[in-house]
Design a protein around this nucleic acid. Structure first.
Length: 852
RNA sequence: GCCCGAGUGGCGGAAUGGUAGACGCAGCGGAUUCAAAAUCCGCCGCAGCAAUGCGUGUCGGUUCGAAUCCGACCUCGGGCACCA
């Protein structure tokens, strides 16, 4: 009797697949194509269960589509630039390049045993000069097309380390290494003009039918289209050149409830005052403390300072409002100046209360009492205007806004304008380990793009023969004279290279396109892009719902505009599936400064560190993340049980879009199940049981029902249900007394159903039962509709909505006859006690409800 | 603070307006075995001897019928533009 030995059979089948070169994507005009892509990994060092889950899902789809007769593209690469490599270099006195490529080698070795149907010939890393050189070429094209520009923007500045910090490196407003209070500081930075596409990116969401509704909603809110009024206050006692103060409001209907005007600390007027008034300078400096994130700004204590300047109310010029500088006004949104109506805005209410400003209601509820604090009804709700100036007395907020805009336009007060919350994409990073921005700063010519024939502008590995020192904070490119100094591509005179590198989101905004022709001498090859684009199914984490996906949608449009993608590819991902995350508890201890030190699960046992016995703090499950070290190593599972067990386990139980808490408990059970399938297949292969018509038909029906359900489950991304179906079919198969021939056929069909999830075992079973060729090369089975119909159904009988009895009736029994049967039922007769039912509801094939 | 989700047995979950708890884990009982492992069979929401009652985060509503639809709230998770 053959035993289930995954360690041998998995290697055997992987070698056989390789030899047959089954997974190389081929442009085959005779076949429909299918491009399935999982979000490529960051090479953190080791794979974790999240990767296994992500790539197994993609593999299930890829293998299923292969069996359905598609020419499949299923590539893999590495999102290889980014901060962790520099941090590692800092910690280990190493080099980001060595660390990154070392990690890639290890992770690839760990992924290979999973038996994924990946075309490894297309592999690349974003830190390969060949890849980022093409990215530089596109940057130059975009610069020439006007899609790239420079402007000032704020960064987190660590005044002790004299360096720019990532948001992640700012903890409670302090630098993570120096502990210094972080300040917001302006630098000149490079930007992509994504705002040009705001409207289109919003409108096009409606056509992304196979994207999750929640992702489209999140992106729509992020883009944040709003209709409002822009107008200028005339100022009183303002410095020269500031006669007018432009403000933007989405609630012009509340204009007569205005009690103050407020400007951002970064507003030109605030900057002017800062230079002339030490008190303003002090206040503005206070406002600039803390990080740059919207979260930090929104949750910080609301601070304001009266500038002493007044503005005249546009509807009544004798009415003057004070002008405050306020830390919660963002310069990036609108005009960087607002008017506050504390009666109908929570934040303005808080501010007005704090600074004792008047709170004047503009409208009140149509019914009921005016609330104690601010009154902020939905814009769609009708309210009664008591200090309105346009439109009806009773109207919705939306109507009030529209009529206020119309009134202001007619009376020359201001203009209705449409604004977007979406800001241009700042791509400059003051860091080493990223794609160098290919421009040269020349004293005579200014900012000049590098010549394309000089690309790639490669990152220097060392510094005049010396290893680059990553232990010094800041950007090594900035203090690397022999790399930095160069000749101007325009005039040939002395120039200096741009030392900013690109945001890693740029790298991941076009890798899907590069996979269609990874070796091309241009960013893409038109024929290949035309054949393979778009990505038919994209799979990745919900954490990328906004930034990565929105940037990719913009970048595809930019690539089209610069001639690198066909028009059909401006929405690069036809269907999107967002998998849930794999979560795990977090273990930490504290260092001398009470800062957290994280520990891997395998270093912890019974709440203590294995090495030292020190007790660890346990934080409840959170997304597995390399920085928190709450990652589980799938290699142990593969070594103990085999890849098929790891694959099947991550597909079972939890629905794919939901988070799953990793627990080791189920792995053994999964392995037992796979061994059971193997055992049953072996029994069947050696059986000579005679045919048995009734049993044969029953097994055949069960098998076809399973074909139907598994197919639907794979198509619908409910892999956990496919697993449950396969468990059920296995139980049926094991108990069935059907003849050997029928059982063999049924088992071969089951091998096909198993193949996308547990490909090695499926091949083993297939070959045991005499299947021809590879099981994954066999055409996907189709359920015979005739075998799916049931002759009779069980109808539950409810009395007043509670289940009290059930009857079994032929499938197509007419309603009237069902009613007769129901009324004759013992429980119904008893409940009616001789009376008539008030109502009798018969839902054919589903349920009966007797209302008494 | 703002935007988006999710809450069902001891546990993961199934059922998306029609029998709540499919399937699996854990547990319990049995068969097999000298014994154990493995395997096979059965039971398994809570309370109750039972009849029956209760039960899908909480409270309210719509409906003949609600885990499912609507409203308010609570808790947990994701994102917030320099983590990837």
């Amino acid at each position: 009797m053959a035993r289930y030995e995954p360690s041998q059979s998995e290697t055997k089948w992987q070698e056989a697949w390789n030899k047959a070169d089954l997974f190389a994507a081929r442009r085959d005009p005779a076949k429909p194509k299918y491009y399935v892509l999982e979000m490529f990994p960051y090479p953190s060092g080791r794979i974790h269960m999240g990767h296994v889950r992500n790539y197994t899902m993609g593999d299930v789809v890829a293998r299923y589509k292969m069996a359905k007769g598609f020419s499949v593209l299923h590539p893999m690469g590495w999102d290889a630039f980014g901060m962790p490599a520099e941090n590692a270099a800092m910690d280990n006195n190493g080099h980001p390049k060595d660390w990154t490529y070392g990690n890639i080698a290890v992770m690839k070795d760990q992924m290979k045993p999973l038996g994924l149907s990946i075309d490894w010939s297309r592999e690349f890393a974003t830190c390969d000069p060949d890849y980022y050189g093409q990215q530089q070429a596109m940057f130059i094209d975009m610069l020439e097309t006007g899609l790239v520009y420079r402007k000032n923007a704020v960064v987190n500045w660590d005044p002790v380390d004299m360096t720019v910090l990532a948001n992640e490196q700012v903890i409670d407003g302090k630098g993570w290494r120096s502990g210094a209070e972080v300040e917001r500081r302006e630098l000149t930075q490079w930007f992509f003009k994504i705002s040009d596409y705001a409207e289109e990116l919003l409108d096009a969401l409606d056509n992304l039918k196979d994207w999750p509704e929640k992702v489209r909603l999140m992106q729509a809110n992020w883009i944040g289209k709003s209709r409002g009024l822009q107008f200028a206050f005339s100022t009183v006692d303002a410095p020269e050149g500031f006669d007018r103060l432009e403000v933007y409001t989405t609630r012009p209907d509340t204009l007569r409830g205005a009690s103050f005007a407020a400007i951002s600390p970064d507003h030109p007027l605030a900057k002017h005052l800062e230079r002339h008034d030490p008190k303003v300078a002090e206040f503005v400096a206070k406002c600039r403390a803390g990080g740059t994130t919207e979260e930090a700004i929104e949750t910080a204590e609301k601070l304001g300072m009266d500038t002493g300047i007044k503005v005249r109310h546009p509807l009544d010029t004798s009415w003057e409002l004070p002008v405050y500088i306020a830390n919660f006004i963002l310069m990036d949104y609108g005009t960087g100046a607002i008017f506050g109506c504390p009666a109908h805005d929570a934040r303005d209410f808080e501010f007005a209360t704090k600074y004792e400003l008047p709170i004047t209601p503009v409208f009140e509820p149509v019914e009921g009492d005016y609330p104690e604090a601010e009154y902020v009804p939905l814009k769609s709700e009708k309210v009664r205007y008591i200090r309105g100036f346009a439109g009806d007395e009773v109207q919705t907020g939306e109507e009030g806004v529209a009529s206020a805009i119309a009134f202001c336009e007619e009376n020359g007060i201001g203009q209705g304008v449409t604004k977007f919350r979406l800001r241009d994409w700042g791509l400059s990073r003051q860091r080493y380990w990223g794609c160098p921005i290919p421009v040269v700063h020349c004293e005579t010519c200014g900012v000049v793009p590098e010549k394309k024939e000089n690309l790639p502008v490669e990152l220097p590995y060392d510094e005049d023969g010396q290893k680059i020192d990553f232990s010094i904070p800041g950007n090594p490119l900035d203090r690397h004279p022999s790399w930095r100094d160069c000749t101007c591509p325009n005039c040939g005179g002395p120039g200096q290279r741009e030392t900013d590198t690109m945001d890693t989101f740029v790298d991941s905004s076009w890798y899907y396109a590069r996979f269609t022709s990874p070796g091309a001498a241009t960013p893409t090859d038109p024929a290949e892009a035309e054949y393979w684009m778009n990505v038919d199914q994209y799979i990745g984490g919900i954490e990328h719902a906004i930034l990565h996906l929105l940037y990719s949608r913009f970048y595809a449009r930019a690539m089209h505009k610069t001639g690198h993608l066909p028009a059909k590819a401006i929405e690069p991902f036809d269907a999107l599936f967002t998998q849930g995350m794999v979560t795990h508890e977090i273990y930490l201890t504290r260092d001398a400064k009470n800062r957290p030190v994280y520990h891997l699960p395998e270093e912890v046992e019974d709440g203590k560190l294995k090495a030292t016995g020190e007790a660890v703090e346990t934080i409840p499950s959170a997304k597995m993340s390399k920085s928190k070290k709450n990652v589980v190593d799938p290699m142990n599972i593969i070594a103990e049980f085999g890849a098929d067990t790891a694959r099947f386990f991550v597909m079972s139980d939890s629905p794919p879009e939901r988070d799953v808490e990793w627990t080791a408990a189920g792995a053994e059970a999964t392995s037992k199940f796979l061994a059971r399938v193997h055992r049953i297949a072996d029994d069947i292969a050696n059986s000579d049981a005679p045919a048995n018509e009734a049993e044969d038909t029953a097994l055949l029906k069960a098998t076809h029902k399973a074909i139907d359900e598994v197919t639907k489950s794979i198509e619908g991304f409910t892999f956990n249900k496919a697993v449950a179906t396969l468990y059920g079919l296995t139980n049926t198969m094991s108990k069935s007394t059907a003849g050997a021939e029928t059982k063999r056929d049924a088992m071969k069909l089951m091998a096909q159903l198993l193949a996308p999830m547990v490909p090695h075992l499926a091949e083993e079973v297939w070959s045991m039962l005499g299947g021809e060729g590879f099981v994954i090369a066999a055409r996907w089975p189709e359920a015979d509709p005739a075998l799916l119909v049931e002759d009779s159904v069980t109808l539950p009988i409810q009395i007043n909505g509670k289940r009290r009895a059930e009857i079994s009736v032929p499938k197509d029994m007419p309603k009237e006859e069902v009613e007769k049967l129901v009324l004759a039922d013992e429980a119904v007769v008893k409940a009616l006690a001789g009376g008539q039912p008030k109502k009798l509801i018969v839902v054919p094939g589903r349920i009966v409800n007797v209302v008494i």
